[in-house]
Design a protein around this nucleic acid. Structure first.
Lengths: 272, 272
DNA sequence: TATAAAGGTGAATCCGCAC
DNA sequence: AGTGCGGATTCACCTTTAT
């Protein structure tokens, strides 16, 4: 794999998609230019005897020291991408980070070390989570999202009324006309639309909608440094935000591009 | 304040309460002797221009570097007490850590660095949380609990059936006869029993009951290094576990002692 | 045709058993 | 004592059948 920062780009009035490395690309972006970043970072590095160097996984020694050093490698990676994000965020801009316990503690701690100010942590409860088959743990049924702003002093966007008075009929936690709480009940998409084939870690559109609705305005610049299959882009474009997405794996990039283009077409059609 | 490790101790058949410093005390305990630790660590060090050195708070410079250095002090503290806990845990023993986003990322990351193996993270949802008055954030309505075991290889205790089939009538998440999930809906105690006066960060007994019920057996040794007002001890004694509690502030120690003694008396009475 | 009940499937470990 | 295979486990959701 060639180590070029940007292998391919596709632009439109509504989005800018980049096939390449996030940190590389972010370092070339205009500083203080992004309103909101949504990031679902990878966390494979330290887990099962594999470590990930510039995009390719290599097997490593599984000794005790290694698990720790893997964790520290993860941590270095998280500090790097969060720093890169910090540079391009507007002072009043905010960052969302999502993850399970495998990665969220390293991310949250890195965030705090790098002077981000946590506004909320959100527990995304999945009512349709898979059962636990081993019977040796509780059934893992949620993920964590951290919402933080760049500067403690700046005034961030929070659409209080939309959150309080919006319609969230399937959420068993949210009461109509009451404040949105830090626990969100949103089902995972069970079968992925056949049009685009299956993708393992797909986030539900309702989740991303809530994130974008709560913390951005129309016309804002939304960036996803680990775009994956592009759900953030699909929803951002649908909601009238400008989307910048970076993805280093070509298959995911192609899938995201197709989905976001389709969404754009749907919008054009519906304007008539 | 004198830096004696143990200022006062009170023992019985059911508990052992220590007024003094946790890390000091733990360093003298028998290694590999404790079945479960429940810890709700303090996190004041780095927060609002105060740092806490050996028990007393001193004002510090609020510069940018300082917030970071305060965080790192917190982190050092968490690594120290978690290491001390690690030493006294049995190989199959487990550790619970509770906290909000102020401290839980540093704790979780420290836990992982110190070779603990996370079994679950639990989102404790508080249906009766206070509303958000600023209208600039989501309403903070949950805390996080991390459950981890000392060794990945060892077989920890998990009372699957008690969790699956027990009665949790007030929990809007838990379905009868279905597995216990990683989100628990438990109200906070609204008014604290008058007998003991008010305490700010009181945890509900139902929460501690669920923790102890799920991860310990009768007769197990349960330790709380930051005992506070002693709820862990009250519930542990009630459930027939042997409780070891450490608290460095005399007022809290006295309160905990009174509550746990009262619980013990209640048990003796009910045996007739 | 709509709604309800019944039956089948898949996912991710852990465990015992045979060697 | 390691290794490897196969069965057991639970629950949401889909499909099929029944009312």
């Amino acid at each position: 794999m060639i180590d070029t920062p940007v292998l391919r780009e596709t632009k439109s009035n509504r989005y800018h998609l980049i096939l390449g490395d996030s940190i590389e690309y972010l370092s070339k972006l205009e500083p203080n230019s992004i309103d909101m970043v949504f990031a679902d970072p990878p966390y494979m590095l330290s887990n099962d005897g594999f470590t990930c160097h510039s995009g390719k996984a290599v097997s490593v020694n599984k000794g005790q020291w290694d698990r720790s050093s893997g964790l520290e490698e993860d941590f270095e990676f998280h500090k790097q991408w969060i720093s890169a994000v910090r540079r391009v965020l507007k002072p009043e801009g905010t960052l969302w980070v999502s993850g399970t316990y495998h990665s969220i503690y390293a991310c949250g701690f890195a965030l705090q070390l790098l002077q981000f100010h946590i506004l909320n942590d959100i527990a995304w409860y999945k009512p349709n989570a898979s059962p636990n088959l081993s019977r040796r743990y509780f059934t893992a049924s949620h993920e964590t999202l951290i919402w933080a702003r760049k500067d403690k002093g700046a005034r961030h966007t929070f659409n209080y009324d939309a959150m309080r008075n919006g319609d969230f009929p399937k959420d068993i936690i949210k009461a109509p006309g009451k404040q949105m709480r830090s626990v969100w009940s949103i089902s995972t998409p069970r079968k992925w639309e056949k049009r685009y084939g299956k993708h393992p870690t797909q986030k539900p559109e309702a989740l991303i909608e809530r994130v974008i609705m709560s913390s951005t305005k129309e016309g804002d610049y939304v960036l996803d440094p680990f775009m994956g299959s592009g759900t953030t882009g699909v929803v951002a474009v649908r909601m009238g935000r400008y989307f910048i997405g970076v993805e280093k794996e070509k298959d995911y990039f192609d899938l995201a591009l197709r989905r976001i283009k389709d969404e754009e077409a749907r919008i054009q059609t519906s304007l008539f």
